[in-house]
Amino acid sequence: MKATFEYLLKRTALTAALLAAPSLALAQEPMQFPTRKAAVQVETIASGLDNPWSVEVLPDGAFIVTELGGSLRIIRDGKASAPITGVPAAARQGQGGLLDVALDPGFSTNRTLFLSMAAADGNGYGTAIARGVLAEDGKSLTDVKELFRMNRFTGKGQHFGSRIAIAADGSLFFGIGDRGERDRAQDMRDHAGAILHINPDGSIPADNPYRDGKAGLAEVWSKGHRNPQGIVIDTTNGQLLTVEHGARGGDEINTPEPGKNYGWPVITYGKDYSGLEIGIGQAADGYEQPLYYWDPSIAPGAIDVYHGAMFPEWEGNLLVAALKYQLLARLERDDSGAIVSEERLFEGEFGRIRDVKVAPDGSVLLLTDGDDATLLRVSAAPQKS
């Protein structure tokens, strides 16, 4: 009787697997979507990723991905490698862990990359930046050096930032949130709530506004940022752009300039989660206005500027990955750089979208969020004959 029962279980499982196989195969086919200016298709490059946070394209066409738990992996032919060894330990706490990966402009010859992460010490947790060299076989990271560590750690687990944008001169811009202690964003002696700027060796660039350390910390570029999780430099004009989480409303796109203050928590378009007002209003002398804001929030995870041959209709548009509403926002700009329209793509189709990256071939990479996440590729849909 027991043998018969086990046989029936196995047969039922096999039948279910056979029935499921066609639908699984169909699920791997590219999905097509109309948009205002182009027909696109979305295909899965890899799945089963564990809370991925950032993706970059390697010179050979493979992808390198961070996972929040501390793993750095290479995806090739749809398969993720074993974790790369030698990666500095990241503190997995709340929203913190291994965060961004950015390739040095000379990566094809020097194999250098940069990482942002949550770090731990006896005072709690904070954001750090490290540099390392990826071995030719992609299996290990060597010559690892910590370039930056924020000056005040806390036991709180939110608002670490932090992506990295590399300027034409090789210097690094990155953001750190207020670490859940909002007033720190207005303290010029605190790295929290700021956009920071360092050289690739960790030294201070000559154009930093507080380089002499008299009016603020030497690494500080701008202040008044709540939680900037996206940062990019527009290669056509060198403009720095960030996208950051507001509270209840008030997600912002900013264009941080040296020595300027972007308001949090003195001014904001959002409210406290309790519904109470924050600060003194939406504008005040001495504080910059955002280039664009969302209310209600979309929970932006990353930002990129579209420059590529695949979608000439999108040239110069901003692309913003969103966790809430599970979408990609495409923002058109006029000749002055002002945002004049927004199109929301893929809403609810693929889950929370953590990262967006324009690939060298002009396709767009999306990294979803969660413990069974996917790397997606958005490309032009085939022309119908």
Results as ranks from 00 to 15, higher is better:
29 E>R: 14
20 A>Y: 03
85 T>V: 12
18 L>Q: 04
98 L>D: 03
80 A>Y: 03
21 A>Y: 15
98 L>C: 10
47 S>L: 06
63 F>R: 02
69 G>R: 13
88 P>C: 04
54 S>V: 00
95 Q>V: 07
70 G>W: 07
35 T>C: 09
99 L>F: 10
60 D>C: 01
59 P>S: 08
18 L>C: 05
16 A>Y: 02
66 T>R: 09
30 P>G: 01
52 P>H: 05
20 A>D: 02
93 Q>I: 09
59 P>R: 07
67 E>C: 05
77 D>K: 10
28 Q>G: 08
109 T>F: 05
90 A>Y: 03
90 A>E: 02
84 I>N: 06
56 E>D: 04
63 F>W: 11
108 S>L: 03
17 A>T: 07
97 G>R: 09
87 V>Q: 02
82 A>P: 15
30 P>I: 13
85 T>M: 06
91 A>T: 11
87 V>T: 13
9 L>H: 05
71 S>H: 13
49 L>V: 10
26 L>Q: 15
23 S>M: 14
104 D>V: 13
51 N>M: 11
62 A>N: 06
24 L>I: 12
29 E>G: 10
89 A>M: 07
54 S>N: 09
47 S>Q: 11
20 A>W: 03
87 V>M: 05
33 F>N: 07
97 G>V: 14
12 T>A: 14
87 V>C: 08
39 A>L: 08
12 T>F: 11
45 I>H: 09
58 L>E: 02
24 L>Y: 05
8 L>S: 07
58 L>Q: 07
68 L>I: 11
87 V>N: 02
81 S>I: 11
32 Q>T: 14
76 R>W: 00
43 E>W: 04
66 T>W: 00
62 A>K: 02
13 A>P: 14
100 D>C: 13
102 A>E: 04
58 L>V: 01
31 M>G: 08
11 R>Y: 15
56 E>P: 08
78 G>V: 02
29 E>P: 05
40 V>W: 04
76 R>P: 12
84 I>H: 04
89 A>L: 11
39 A>C: 06
32 Q>G: 13
107 F>N: 04
52 P>S: 05
29 E>D: 11
17 A>I: 09
73 R>L: 09
13 A>C: 13
101 V>A: 01
98 L>Q: 10
75 I>F: 00
38 A>N: 04
46 A>W: 00
90 A>N: 07
56 E>M: 13
57 V>H: 10
54 S>G: 10
71 S>W: 04
28 Q>V: 09
94 G>V: 04
101 V>N: 00
56 E>L: 12
26 L>E: 14
87 V>Y: 01
107 F>A: 03
36 R>H: 13
104 D>A: 15
34 P>N: 09
63 F>M: 05
44 T>Y: 08
16 A>R: 02
54 S>Q: 12
103 L>E: 01
79 K>H: 14
13 A>V: 15
44 T>D: 08
69 G>E: 03
19 L>W: 05
50 D>L: 11
97 G>C: 10
63 F>V: 03
99 L>W: 02
89 A>D: 08
56 E>H: 05
63 F>G: 02
81 S>V: 10
52 P>C: 05
108 S>I: 02
102 A>K: 08
64 I>K: 08
67 E>G: 05
53 W>V: 09
106 G>P: 00
